Amino acid sequence: MEEPQQSSTEAGFALRRLVPPPALCGFLLLLALVFAGSYAAGAAVGPVAPDMQRSGTGGDGSSGTEGGMDMKHGSGG
């Protein structure tokens, strides 16, 4: 009669070992809520600068480099 009880205890211990602790689950939930709240606040406020726009959304066909600055990458002259 001892063996079935012992095997169920071992199975319960293995199951408890695989489940993350409640404090970790609470922390991850709180972290997700903070990120969701900050994203919602940022979306509600809008861009941080008056002339800031997403790249590629301009209707004039520009590639997002405005102000006369030519952005070239690589070596060479």
Score class of each variant (00 low, 15 high):
Leu30Tyr: 11
Gln5Arg: 11
Ala44Thr: 14
Gly58His: 13
Ser55Leu: 07
Ala49His: 01
His73Val: 11
Pro20Asn: 09
Gly64Ile: 06
Val19Tyr: 02
Leu31Asn: 05
Gly59Lys: 09
Gly61Ile: 00
Gln53Ile: 01
Leu15Pro: 05
Met52Gln: 15
Leu31Glu: 07
Ala43Cys: 09
Phe35Gln: 08
Tyr39Glu: 02
Gly77Glu: 08
Leu33Trp: 08
Ala11His: 04
Gly74Lys: 07
Leu18Pro: 00
Val48Met: 08
Val45Cys: 12
Gln5Leu: 10
Leu31Ile: 00
Gln6Tyr: 08
Gly77Trp: 06
His73Ala: 07
Gly68Asn: 15
Ala23Trp: 00
Ala41Gly: 05
Ala14Tyr: 04
Leu33Asn: 02
Val19His: 02
Phe27His: 12
Ser62Asn: 15
Pro50Arg: 09
Leu29Lys: 12
Met52Glu: 14
Gly56Ser: 03
Gly59Asp: 01
Gly64Lys: 05
Pro20Gly: 06
Phe13Asp: 01
Val34Gln: 00
Ala49Pro: 00
Ser75Pro: 07
Asp70Ile: 00
Gly12Asn: 08
Thr57Asn: 14
Gly68Phe: 06
Gly67Arg: 06
Ser62Met: 07
Gly26Phe: 08
Glu10Asp: 12
Gly42Asn: 14
Asp70Pro: 02
Gly61Gln: 00
Arg16Ala: 14
Gly76Lys: 03
Met69Pro: 01
Lys72Cys: 04
Ala36Trp: 02
Leu24Glu: 15
Leu30Ala: 15
Thr9Asn: 09
Val19Trp: 04
Glu10Pro: 01
Leu33Asp: 01
Gly68Arg: 06
Ala49Val: 06
Ala44Lys: 12
Lys72Asp: 03
Met52Arg: 11
Ala36His: 03
Ser55Ile: 10
Met1Asn: 14
Leu33Val: 07
Ser7Ala: 09
Ala32Pro: 01
Met1Val: 13
His73Glu: 06
Leu18His: 06
Met52Cys: 09
Leu18Asp: 04
Met1Thr: 12
Leu29Val: 15
Pro47Asn: 15
Lys72Pro: 01
Pro47Leu: 04
Arg16Trp: 11
Val19Gly: 02
Asp60Ala: 14
Arg54Trp: 02
Tyr39Val: 04
Tyr39Ser: 04
Met1Glu: 13
Met1Ile: 12
Asp60His: 10
Ala14Val: 05
Ser55Glu: 09
Arg17Glu: 01
Ser7Tyr: 01
Pro21Gly: 15
Glu66Gln: 11
Ser62Pro: 07
Ala43Thr: 13
Ala40Tyr: 02
Ala40Phe: 04
Leu15Cys: 08
Leu28Phe: 08
Arg16Lys: 12
Phe27Pro: 03
Ser8Asp: 09
Asp60Gly: 10
Pro47Val: 07
Ala36Thr: 13
Pro21Trp: 09
Gly61Leu: 00
Leu30Lys: 12
Leu15Glu: 14
His73Arg: 09
Ser38Asp: 09
Gly56Thr: 03
Ser55Cys: 13
Met69Ala: 02
Gly77Asp: 11
Thr9Ile: 14
Phe35Arg: 03
Met52Ala: 15
Pro4Met: 04
Pro20Cys: 04
Gly26Ile: 10
Arg54Phe: 02
Ala41Asn: 05
Gly64Trp: 05
Gly77Tyr: 06
Asp70Met: 00
Ala32Ser: 05
Leu15Tyr: 06
Met71His: 08
Thr57Met: 10
Ser8Trp: 10
